[in-house]
Design a binder for these strands. Sequence first.
DNA 1: CGTACGACCTGCCCGC
DNA 2: TGCGGGCAGGTCGTAC
Length: 289
Amino acid sequence: MPELPEVEIVRQGLIPFVNEKEIQKVEQRRPDLRWPLPSDMKVRLVNVKIQNILRRSKYILFNLSSDETMLVHLGMSGRLLVIKDKEDNKEQSGIFKFNPCKINKHDHVIIHLYPDIRIVYNDPRRFGAIDIAPTKHIYDHKWLKNLGPEPLGNEFSSDYLFKKLKNRKSSVKAALMDQTVVAGLGNIYVLEALWLSKVSPLRLAGSLGRREVECLTASIIKVLLAAIKAGGTSLQDFRNVGGEIGYFQQSLNVYDCFDQKCKNRDCSGTIQRVKQLGRTSYYCNSCQK
DNA sequence: CGTACGACCTGCCCGC
DNA sequence: TGCGGGCAGGTCGTAC
């Protein structure tokens, strides 16, 4: 579910709740998500302050006063929700009024920041993950060490991408999905960026010319910034920390647009749907070459 | 090494 | 109404 823009929206939503107060309590309601949670997670979080919240690719990094960092990945269906008990109570009908903490069965980890505010990690499919590791070497963590550059960072350029794509034997779609090439893109934004740059996802990565890669690089940046501005894409699951949807799905041009007329002005093509690497690709049969 | 594929999970939607 | 199949924003281990 969440690609870079959605993860960034979650990060930004959490920031106002970071201050000098310590984590008061942690509830861990199962031993694992995709992998085992740190067995001593409670001990390492309680009485510790969250100093800052950063993002690397699709990982949220909670910088802690204990010189450790908590890494959170939302997988396909994960959410981080900030729950305020006062609002929570207001929504509840009579039968729930004696239970101030409505617990969903997929609420796996609950971090209490104040007596009435908590961060809830909810993830039905449990493809997400949480770990805690020393901040000093956090970028050597196995989840982060092989990631390519941030697409919205200074290291990402058309020169860089051209070199990376040049020797690939796979499709350009597969190359952009590879997190070691560029970090943070997923199925939606890869396909949207390819549509913007009029390149078919089926093209071999090495066949793209410099001009095409320049356009593709600009399109990746453009679509990510626009999606962040719109609050992310909410097709089914995504919600921000307040439980609200984003609005970028209204701006999707190809993803989930099978059989629709191409939204490119001056193009009479139709959006196609094919499988690539077990994932669905969408592209225009006319303007994407 | 690069590449492709199955596996990991639950929930939802569709067709029969 | 119920059931089976297929699908979903991601990533890793394995096999070639």
